[in-house]
């Protein structure tokens, strides 16, 4: 099996998604996922460039319906999961492992608002997090303040004023995260122009969310109990 060249199948009725194979090389049926044919069950071998959206048969868009996503993932999992190839040969088992991992990676990206936004920014030629490191001075001052409160709360005994102050701080940071994420959603829907300045703004918001998430993770661990 070789990756299908979509151009050789001109005139078909299925959508093109990012140059992904769209018909089965074995039986010619239309594909919902480039990983395997839902009709004849043949495992296909698309190039590693296939986008996470294409893996589960979606067009690139920021908004993803979680229910639809879960349903699609289950459907593809039924075609490629290693459990269905446990008594097949070594090659098929390895292919199922690889396809299963690709499906799960796509799912991880698509179900997570931040990872999805990050993928779209890169996909549209926007800056990576390493390229856009500048954060406004005022924001960095805020970060210093939380971390100070966090350090004090973490070293104080449970029930102390410093520790109790972490409750409102967690609420505040969670609210700030929600506001920032709403800005990201607004900027990415509809998708901005490739390489536009809007992507840089989204990247900054995503970077801010990373700072917020790190603090929220620590707050959560303190509230629930340290990970072992």
């Amino acid at each position: 099996m070789t990756p299908t060249d979509p151009k050789s199948h001109a005139g078909h009725t299925h959508q093109h998604v990012l140059g992904v194979p769209h018909v089965c090389t074995s039986c010619g049926a239309g594909l919902e996922t480039p990983l395997a044919c839902g009709d004849c069950g043949t495992m296909l071998t698309p190039s590693s460039e296939v986008s996470p959206y294409a893996v589960i048969g979606l067009e690139v868009a920021y908004e993803v319906d979680p229910k639809d996503l879960a349903q699609r993932v289950r459907k593809v999992a039924r075609l490629v999961h290693p459990d269905f190839f446990a008594s097949a040969g070594t090659t098929m088992r390895a292919l199922a492992e690889a396809h299963g991992a690709r499906l799960n990676e796509a799912h991880e990206i698509l179900k997570n608002d931040v990872r999805r936004a990050d993928w779209i920014v890169r996909h549209l030629g926007g800056p990576s997090e390493e390229q856009e490191r500048q954060m406004p001075q005022s924001f960095l001052m805020e970060v210093l303040e939380w971390n100070e409160a966090l350090d004090e709360g973490a070293s104080a005994p449970p029930g102390s004023t410093e520790r109790l102050a972490l409750g409102p701080l967690e609420d505040e940071l969670a609210a700030q995260r929600a506001r920032t994420l709403a800005l990201v959603a607004q900027a990415l829907d509809p998708l901005p122009e490739r390489g536009s300045a809007a992507l840089t703004a989204v990247r900054r918001d995503l970077n801010a969310i990373r700072y917020l998430d790190r603090a929220l993770r620590r707050l959560r661990d303190l509230r629930i109990g340290q990970p072992s």
Partner: peptide, 14 residues
């Protein structure tokens, strides 16, 4: 530690 795979990721994963 640089995390490569987060806990509670569905397996198989790469």
């Amino acid at each position: 530690v640089a995390k490569l795979i987060q806990r509670n990721s569905t397996v198989p994963c790469s």
